[in-house]
Nucleic acid binder design. Sequence first.
DNA 1: AATTAAATTAACAATCTTGTTAGCAAAGAT
DNA 2: ATCTTTGCTAACAAGATTGTTAATTTAATT
Lengths: 206, 206
Amino acid sequence: MKSKDNNTEKAILQAAEVEFLTKGYDGAKTVAIAERAGVTHAMLHYYYRSKRNLYEKILNDKIEMVIKSFVASFSMPGLDIVQRIKIGMESHFDFIMANPLLPRFIINEVFSKGDNLLIVQMHDKMQRVFEKVQREIDAAVEEGVIRPITVFDLVVDIVSLNVFTFVALPVLGEFATMLYASEKAMLEARKRENVEVIMRRILIDR
Amino acid sequence: MKSKDNNTEKAILQAAEVEFLTKGYDGAKTVAIAERAGVTHAMLHYYYRSKRNLYEKILNDKIEMVIKSFVASFSMPGLDIVQRIKIGMESHFDFIMANPLLPRFIINEVFSKGDNLLIVQMHDKMQRVFEKVQREIDAAVEEGVIRPITVFDLVVDIVSLNVFTFVALPVLGEFATMLYASEKAMLEARKRENVEVIMRRILIDR
DNA sequence: AATTAAATTAACAATCTTGTTAGCAAAGAT
DNA sequence: ATCTTTGCTAACAAGATTGTTAATTTAATT
């Protein structure tokens, strides 16, 4: 085979990522992807058969990335549950900040359809983790450290706060210029606020 | 003119609404809209010139609807700031529950592009309201009723929590069947949780 | 160097999509 | 009753979009 390794194949994948993430499935065009990759659009079919197929490669990639990162964020060992949540939220926020196009992409292509297959798969994977965390929470509640909450509510609260900031970023960015020194400053403030909100939700009044 | 009043015109608008809200601009097809309305797609151009034009009519409608409803939700007269926020959050949540397709639509078509024109317009409109609410908050803080917070943070917190529930509904719905009696039960629980989160964020520890 | 296999391109094909237009039908105006 | 306006349809047109294929180039194999 060519010494040119698998350059084109990767180039197409990367170009497709940008195209799909920014424009969504319907908005993305195969010729635009090929153009961005610097090849004819025939190559796209040569390597990936179809637009749908290429899209699903990227979608699966991103879903795995999101789940892995989320779990990893909240898995700092040697910390108590409260600190893990706090560090985890910051880490989760930072991950989205580093991948600001992900939320909209995932929302549109996973959250929109009742993609039962995927969700059930996800649920099965998470069930054990969720149950373990729930037991930790319940134990901490017993000790009088935190107030009662279900993992479900806690996760939805956290993801709501962290994700929405970036979903709404194009709008919030405008406000940022009026209220903050920079967009980055606004985001740092939002990160703090999100953690504060969750901490006050779970911590016992002192 | 025909006694047939302006039936077709409205039918197209309604069909377009369903189509655009469920599929987004790129996913929506003019022939599909016409079909849904029970007319030829030529009628769509007869009444609305172009797909883009029709789309923008609906987009403007929805944006106005969202803003008006949001302001109205938090404008119950004769209530103190804390109660207004509480009732407002519930009312806001109920509005989205009655229009569950709105969040994704608005997110994709407003929040995605730096639609400066619209945002600046919106900001100018809201500035007075925001300033007034901020003064109320500051006064309540002085009185020791609530903890300091900016209107910006408060609004983002509230919208994050309420909107995300519906953005993620297709996924949360799956979990709902495992954790709750019904999707409706889950949503009622989420509404309570969202209010609880914000209340604990703003209220002074008792 | 000759042969084989893989990568790439240009051209084509089929379908979809938006938009237009000419003509017909129905209603109102004169 | 005739004329005019409006609503509407069918057919068409232009271009976009996805996908295929035959031919060419490039690299690897012998």
